[in-house]
Design a protein around this nucleic acid. Structure first.
Length: 282
DNA sequence: GCCTTATGTTCAC
DNA sequence: TGAACCTAAGGCT
């Protein structure tokens, strides 16, 4: 589920590779030149900003990743320790792996990314300059985001998914956060009060870290409670999320029983409860 | 097995 | 507004 939480979760999973000598390969043969840029370098930190990942290296450019709809990244420990003490470059390949990194302990397989490219520092800055603030990083509701909301003719629901306004929110978090707060998705941007925007921002700041930790979009009180009640540990099982509105067209709203509605809005499906999501108008 | 849909973004018309 | 990218899962037959 590649909304922002997925990418922050990925950055965390890449942290153990930092400082390692890595080999980079293109198992599918579709990114041979790209792989050669990173082959033999030392991995640095991976940083997430919204749905974008920036993975730096000591003697190479930064790898810029965006998973889009279909992209996946697997980070797996090797089953066996390499006998020669070198990163194994002859491991089996499952499916279409665009780019693979290996160190002596683990492999990182990148499949079907929308963006997978090498950037220098200036180019990274240019990409990041187009992204709004990221709720996973926390902090108070940013004035910059509210300003762009006020300048817009679009609705709150559309603006929430504009990555230049807020970075990292996708269609699931949008539907679930608006539902949790009983907010009407169609409030015009210029009518969004600072109080309403603060509610939305604070809710994202509170909810998204659970997504980063669990790797799943947890937004209902039951799911959150179930996750919190489990003991932390390396084998903590990944929960199955239950949504209140997302993908629940025609099924009863868990709060008021009215059927969940769905419609296309700027090319994306919006799910909401027309009866109880009426708040937020000034 | 086949068809539809999906967490996203960019580009062409 | 629709197509393209190109993968996986679920519903259906």
């Amino acid at each position: 589920m590649a909304e922002g939480h997925t990418i922050h979760n990925l950055a965390r999973r890449l942290a153990p590779v930092q400082g390692s000598y890595v080999r980079a390969l293109s198992p599918a043969g579709t990114a041979v030149d790209l792989a050669s840029l990173f082959d033999g370098s030392i991995a640095g930190p991976a940083v997430a900003h919204g749905k974008h990942l920036f993975w730096s290296f000591e003697t190479a450019p930064t790898l810029h990743l965006h998973l889009g709809m279909f992209g996946r990244v697997q980070v797996r420990l090797h089953r066996r320790k390499p006998s020669d003490g070198q990163p194994p470059t002859d491991l089996p390949v499952a499916g279409n792996v665009r780019l693979r990194f290996v160190d002596t302990l683990r492999k990182v397989d990148i499949k079907a990314p929308t963006i997978c490219e090498a950037l220098d520092a200036d180019e990274v800055a240019m990409v990041r300059a187009k992204l709004g603030p990221d709720p996973v990083l926390g902090g108070p509701a940013p004035k910059r985001a509210l300003d762009s909301i006020h300048r817009s003719r679009r609705t709150l629901a559309e603006l929430l998914m504009d990555q230049s306004v807020i970075a990292g929110v996708g269609n699931v978090y949008r539907a679930e956060v608006l539902h949790r707060l009983r907010l009407d998705p169609f409030i015009p941007g210029r009518e969004v009060t600072p109080e309403v925007f603060a509610l939305v921002w604070d809710e994202l700041v509170q909810l998204m870290p659970y997504g980063v930790d669990s790797g799943r979009i947890l937004t209902t009180d039951d799911d959150l409670e179930r996750w919190r009640s489990q003991l932390d540990g390396p084998r903590k099982p990944r929960p199955t999320p239950h949504y209140a509105a997302y993908l629940r067209t025609g099924r009863p709203c868990p709060r008021c029983g009215h059927p969940i509605a769905a419609r296309d809005l700027s090319g994306r499906r919006l799910y909401w409860c027309p009866r109880c999501q009426t708040e937020g108008h000034s």
